[in-house]
Amino acid sequence: MRYAMAMDTKKCVGCSDCVVACQTENNVPHGFCRDWIVENVDGTYPNLEMEIRSERCNQCEDTPCVRTCPTGASHIIEGGIVKVTHVECIGCGACIQACPYDARYFHPDGYVDKCTFCDHRVSKGQDTACVAVCPTKCLYFGDLHDENSPVSKILRERKWKVNAPEAGTKPQVYFLI
């Protein structure tokens, strides 16, 4: 099993529902977030282009965060989801330095926190909170090894890219373009 997410930049309006749904789902403290919205504008008025992306931990195939963790608190579970065992985390910050996406942060309680692909939901067959809430349905989730999963299907149909592929982490959040 290999969980992945695809995000349709053509449909996303940047409403940030994914951000707030994640916060209420996962008790993300105020002032922090596990996912966020980026807007890119290019051109000169009136010849303009804009891309909006909902971003989060890329649940990389090659995980520098897990590799650099000195205690094993950062680890990989079923489906390639990268998680942090809070009680094993000493808060050294190595994994934060190691992440090219800056997807991790220090929780005020001292441990490192990040997107979990809502493993508590997906393990029960539900979508992640962000996917389930998105009003534009621009987020697709599923198992890449299952060719009928929404994410496998959309990646076959559409052109896509990933963020910072040159960082060499094999990110598993795909952006449909």
Binding site: G14, S16, V19, G31, F32, C33, D35, W36, I37, V38, E39, N40, V41, D42, G43, T44, I52, G93, I96, Q97, D102, Y105, F106
Partner: peptide
């Protein structure tokens, strides 16, 4: 002109605008 900005989220202490978790 190229523009890149966070619409929402981020601005996380010690991480945005630039990483500064090691002092």
């Amino acid at each position: 002109m190229k523009e890149e900005l966070f619409v929402s989220g981020r601005n996380i202490p010690f991480i945005d605008p630039v990483l500064h978790i090691w002092h």
